[in-house]
């Protein structure tokens, strides 16, 4: 039977892109690197006890007192395991990836909510982005951006963006038709409708998307350690490759603590919005 040369085509495409768009990829690389380094520099520059305090306050404010206490205890555990630097590096990578995913994902989601054709095109693309085994992104990312944090961030963005796109689109589509009709009846322009009605009403759903995106970013970070993204992923990877069960567990535990903390905080954000809505 004839074998469709999909793999060959992808290889040709990637090598064509790398040779012809070198300066484009270099530009992206330097921008991303600056962002990641800035975050990392900030997080590592601040003494750990102040960072812990800030986290605790944010958790207390957006979620509840329990989460605030959890922030203090959890982060102190990380500090005592000697993984503070790696954790902050991972946090910087997660925040950068989430940030980029939001910048691209929210407008894309809004556009999809208003355009059925785009919605139909994007849905399989999003499925592809989300279900393609994450490792597969790593190879072309390395082609384009070499080893290091940048390809890690790019692969993370691709893997983590779909939820925020989907949920933005869903949230806006779920705004009740009668409210939209009422807004039109008072002569609202489409941008007034978007910013005064649709986005505020979709916000809890969009925030749920943000939460999912952050969680996916964190899970991707460990994988992208394989291409030198560093951070906690490195610790876990070292544990696996060198059979150091203890160290691997410590790295994994730090990821879990960070994940729970970010999850509770962003969920708290969404619930706060929902409370206002009710």
């Amino acid at each position: 039977m004839y074998k469709i040369p999909i793999g060959d085509i992808v290889e040709i495409l990637i090598s064509w892109l790398t040779t012809n768009f070198t300066s484009f990829f270099d530009g992206i690389k330097s921008i991303l690197l600056t962002v990641i380094n800035t975050f990392a520099w900030i997080f590592n520059g601040i003494p750990f006890y102040i960072t812990i305090l800030i986290f605790a306050l944010i958790a207390w404010k957006f979620a509840n007192k329990g989460t605030g206490i959890f922030a203090i205890v959890g982060l102190l555990v990380i500090q005592s395991m000697g993984l503070w630097r790696e954790t902050m590096q991972t946090l910087a990578l997660v925040i950068t990836a989430t940030f980029i995913a939001l910048i691209i994902g929210i407008p894309l989601g809004i556009w999809m909510s208003r355009n059925d054709k785009l919605n139909n095109i994007m849905r399989p693309v999003l499925d592809f982005m989300q279900t393609m085994p994450a490792f597969v992104y790593l190879i072309p990312a390395v082609y384009f951006f070499d080893l290091g944090q940048v390809p890690g961030a790019v692969a993370t963005v691709i893997f983590a963006m779909p939820p925020v796109v989907r949920l933005t689109s869903l949230g806006i589509r779920q705004v009740p038709e009668d409210v939209i009709e009422a807004s039109h009846s008072f002569g609202a322009t489409s941008s007034q409708l978007l910013f005064k009605v649709q986005i505020p009403l979709a916000l809890p759903t969009i925030l749920a998307g943000l939460n999912q995106t952050i969680m996916l970013s964190l899970s991707m970070v460990v994988i992208s350690a394989m291409i030198g993204a560093g951070g906690l992923g490195n610790v876990v990877l070292r544990g696996i490759t060198q059979m150091r069960i203890g160290e691997g567990f410590e790295g994994g535990l730090a990821v879990v603590i960070l994940a729970m903390l970010l999850d509770r905080i962003t969920q708290g954000l969404g619930q706060q919005k929902r409370k206002i809505k009710q």
């Binding site: 009709e181 008072f186 002569g187 005064k196 009605v197 809505k277 009710q278």
Partner: peptide
């Protein structure tokens, strides 16, 4: 905006806004 206003069967109020901000919506627009 100026001549015709509509009142709906299911009220169609903006659930995320206070009564005052709902009532002022037309002027805000």
């Amino acid at each position: 905006r100026k001549k015709v206003a509509m009142i709906f069967q299911n009220f169609a109020l903006l659930p995320h806004r206070s009564v005052l901000d709902n009532v002022g919506f037309g002027l805000e627009i």
